Amino acid sequence: MLLTEFESGRAVIEPTDKGIRCGGEVCETMIFSFNGEIVDRVRQMPESREVGRLQTLNGRHPWYILERDGLQVGVMLAVIGAPMAVGHLEELKACGFENFIVLGSCGVLDESLVADKIILPSSALRDEGTSYHYAPANDEISYNEALLLTMEKALDQAGIEHVRAKTWTTDAFYRETADKVKRRMSVGAEVVDMEASALMAWAQFRQANVYQFFYTADYVDHHNEEWDKRHEERTADVMTFFEVALAIAKEL
């Protein structure tokens, strides 16, 4: 089977190749946000400036450096989907960023998880393709425990409530059937996303420091085979979640 062909050797194209790397100012920590509104609002802050970019066929992907209270962080929009998200992280690491704080929403499979709750995805079911090129084939993968503890310490110190959860990472959000949801829940998945298992595999392969958290959004109701967008329950300002990322950055 193709997905069992993991190889750890050098690839024909590496992110460190001179023809790939884009220039720009870097700092130690990059906040990689799947929420575009967060990045737009950071971009408009007076203490923020555009300092670099990645370039793809889709166009420019700029990053910004924000300086606040002696803290300096990079901020960039994360493209949705495991292949591009990992590809951009590869290039950002090659550019010199050392720590990656990744944030975005997730769907919930367990209705008891209320909207806007902070979730630390400690492990993931690998229902996407990218991770199989960064780690041997297996149904599940986890983040580095030491990095999870660092993130938990930062959130505890900031008084931010959070829980760990197993996520189901899937490439095909239009194919989340009721039976699949039941099967994923039967092995412990509580939330669903599109990138986490690939990011976990990339972090292990490149020995990268990835600190990822979700905030809960819609509910995939497998009982009634309905999609609950939870619009009325999702009341938090998105910058609340950016402040969570900054709390982690301060700990690093």
Score class of each variant (00 low, 15 high):
64 Y>N: 08
84 M>G: 00
63 W>Y: 14
69 D>C: 00
50 E>A: 12
79 V>A: 13
57 L>H: 10
47 E>M: 04
44 Q>P: 00
53 R>F: 07
48 S>P: 01
50 E>P: 03
73 V>Q: 10
59 G>N: 09
85 A>M: 07
41 R>C: 01
53 R>Q: 13
46 P>Y: 09
82 A>R: 05
39 V>R: 10
40 D>R: 13
62 P>C: 08
41 R>E: 08
83 P>A: 07
39 V>G: 08
51 V>E: 03
70 G>F: 13
72 Q>K: 15
81 G>Q: 11
42 V>I: 15
71 L>A: 11
61 H>C: 10
34 F>C: 02
68 R>S: 12
45 M>A: 13
44 Q>N: 12
60 R>E: 14
38 I>A: 08
45 M>K: 14
58 N>V: 09
61 H>T: 04
51 V>M: 04
85 A>N: 08
67 E>S: 14
53 R>D: 06
62 P>F: 05
43 R>Y: 07
36 G>L: 04
63 W>P: 05
43 R>L: 02
47 E>K: 05
67 E>K: 15
58 N>R: 14
57 L>G: 02
44 Q>G: 03
56 T>V: 02
34 F>E: 02
57 L>Q: 12
34 F>T: 03
78 A>E: 08
63 W>D: 09
40 D>M: 03
66 L>F: 10
75 V>S: 06
42 V>Y: 06
75 V>G: 05
40 D>G: 01
84 M>C: 04
46 P>I: 07
69 D>V: 00
64 Y>A: 03
54 L>G: 08
47 E>F: 01
72 Q>L: 01
77 L>P: 00
58 N>S: 14
58 N>A: 14
85 A>V: 09
39 V>T: 15
34 F>K: 01
58 N>F: 13
77 L>H: 12
77 L>K: 15
82 A>E: 09
52 G>L: 06
58 N>C: 06
85 A>D: 09
48 S>K: 03
79 V>I: 15
51 V>Q: 01
61 H>P: 01
63 W>H: 10
43 R>C: 04
68 R>K: 15
49 R>P: 01
43 R>K: 15
54 L>R: 02
85 A>I: 09
49 R>F: 03
40 D>N: 13
42 V>M: 09
73 V>K: 08
34 F>L: 09
32 F>L: 07
79 V>Y: 04
54 L>H: 05
38 I>P: 03
82 A>Q: 07
86 V>T: 14
40 D>W: 00
86 V>P: 08
67 E>I: 01
48 S>I: 01
43 R>T: 06
52 G>F: 03
60 R>W: 04
60 R>A: 11
53 R>Y: 08
57 L>A: 14
71 L>K: 07
46 P>S: 12
44 Q>E: 15
41 R>S: 03
82 A>N: 07
46 P>T: 07
36 G>C: 00
54 L>T: 09
70 G>V: 13
67 E>A: 04
33 S>G: 07
33 S>I: 05
37 E>W: 03
68 R>D: 13
69 D>A: 06
81 G>N: 11
44 Q>A: 15
73 V>W: 11
36 G>E: 10
40 D>T: 04
43 R>P: 00
38 I>V: 15
82 A>V: 08
